[in-house]
Amino acid sequence: LLQAWLPSGQSIVLQPRKGFYVAFQQVTGADGHTRQLLAMSRSHVRLRPQTREKIYLAAQLLLSLLFIGVVGWWVARSVARPVQALRRATRRMAEGELSTRVGRQRGLAHDELAQLAGDFDLMAGRIEALVAHDRAVLQDLSHELRSPLARLQLIIDLARRSSDPSEAEPYFLQAEGEIARLDHMLGEMLALSRMEGGLPGMERERVDLAELVHDAIEQFRIDADAGRVELKLASVDSLVVSGNAMLLERALGNLLANAIKFSPEGGQVELTLRAEQRFAALVLRDHGPGVPDDELNLLFRPFFRGSNAARADGHGLGLAIVERVVQVHGGTIEVRNGDGGGLEIRVGLPLA
C-alpha cells in the first residue's frame, strides 16, 4: 500500500490507537533525493491550502505590525530624549543657571537635533561669557569710581570749610580736575560698551592706513616731545583696509598714547606698517618697562593695569578699546615683551 500511495504524492495517516496518529508522505529534497517523511501527533486536523495561506498572511501581518511598533517606539524615544534634554536646559537657563549645557545626548548623532543641541551650547556659552564680562566690568567700574568720588567729596568738604574764596579756589580747581577725569573715564566706558554691543550699522569705507599713521604721528608728536620721546616710522607701506576711519584712528591713538606714557625720557617708539599675505600688519614697539609675562593676557581687560604701572595715569581702558576696534574689523591683536625690554603690539587687519 505504501509503495502504491507514496509515489503518487498522497499521504497516509494511520491511527494505531485512539488519540494517536502517524502520517507518512514521500518528499523530494533540494538535492533531488526522495525521502519518506514520518510525522506523529495526538490530533488529526488537516487544513485546506487556502486556510493555511490565510493563517500565514495573518501571522506575517501580526509580526510586521509588531516590528513597526517596536521601531516606532525606538524612534520616538530617541527623538523625545534629546528634546526633553533641550527643554530642561532651556528651563535652567531661564532660571539663571547660565552654566547649563545640553552636551552629547544618547540618540544624537549628526542629525538636526544634534546640530540644535550644539547651537544651544554655543549660545549658552556666549551668554555666560557676556554676563561674566559685564559683571567683571561693573565690579571694576565700581572700584574705579570709589576713589575719585571719595577724593571729590573730601575736596568739596575742604572747600566748604575755607574761610574766604581765595583759600577755597585751589580746592575747586582740584575738584574740576577730578570731574574731568571722571568724565573721561565714563566716556571711555561708554565707547567700550557700544563696541561690546557689536556696533550695529557701522559705516565702512576704504581707509588708507599709511595716511592714518602719518596723521597720528603728527598729532602725538607734541606729547612725545613733552616727554622727550622720539617717534620713529621704521617703514610704512601704502595699504588700504575696509573699516571705520574714526574707530581706527582712535585705536591707533590709544596705542601711541600708551607707548609714549610708558617710555622713559630719551626713549623711542617705533612704528612699522607692512603687508603680510592678505593682512596689513601694524607693529608698535616701545622701550619702556614692559609687562610681566604672566600679565600679558590681562592687558586687554578693562581697568587692568600692570603691577609695574599701578601709579601711571589712566584708567586701563585704552587697550580694551583697541582690542574691540580690531575685533569688529575682523583683525587680530597680539602683544609680547620685546627683546631687550619694552612692549611690542602687533595688529593685523584684513586688506580691502
Results as ranks from 00 to 15, higher is better:
P16D: 09
F303A: 03
E265P: 14
R126H: 15
R126D: 07
M189D: 06
D31M: 11
G342R: 01
V83I: 13
R311G: 04
A4T: 09
A175N: 05
Q219E: 00
R250S: 10
P302Y: 01
G288K: 10
V347E: 03
E178Y: 07
L6K: 11
L47G: 08
M185G: 02
F279S: 13
R181T: 09
V240K: 00
D111P: 06
V328I: 06
F67S: 06
R336F: 03
R151T: 12
F279G: 09
R92V: 08
R77F: 04
I127T: 07
I345T: 10
I68Q: 09
V229K: 01
M93F: 07
I68A: 14
E112R: 13
L57D: 02
R204L: 04
K232Y: 01
A245W: 02
E176V: 01
L284C: 09
R160E: 07
M123H: 10
N297V: 13
M40E: 14
G9A: 10
G288Q: 09
V325N: 09
A89Q: 09
V27A: 08
S64D: 07
L284M: 02
K261T: 14
H133Q: 05
L61K: 14
A168D: 02
A76M: 12
R311H: 08
L247Q: 15
L113A: 09
V241A: 02
V79E: 06
G243T: 01
R161C: 14
L284T: 09
S147K: 15
G118D: 01
H214E: 05
V240R: 00
P264D: 03
S142G: 13
G341H: 06
A210N: 02
K18W: 05
G340D: 09
E276R: 07
I345L: 07
R324N: 00
G103C: 02
F24I: 03
G96F: 08
T90H: 06
H315L: 04
L158N: 10
D157I: 07
R250I: 07
F279H: 08
R206W: 04
L138C: 05
Q50M: 06
R206Q: 03
L351C: 11
G187F: 08
A281Q: 12
P165S: 12
G316I: 03
I179C: 03
Q36I: 15
I333S: 01
D134N: 15
V241M: 00
A245M: 05
V322Y: 01
A245K: 13
H110V: 13
A310I: 11
R81H: 03
T51I: 15
L138N: 08
R250H: 12
R206K: 02
G341S: 02
E344N: 08
V75H: 12
V241G: 02
I55M: 12
Q26W: 05
S307H: 08
K18Y: 04
M246V: 15
L158R: 13
M123T: 15
M246E: 15
S43E: 14
G267M: 07
L152A: 12
A251H: 06
S242M: 13
F300P: 11
Q25E: 14
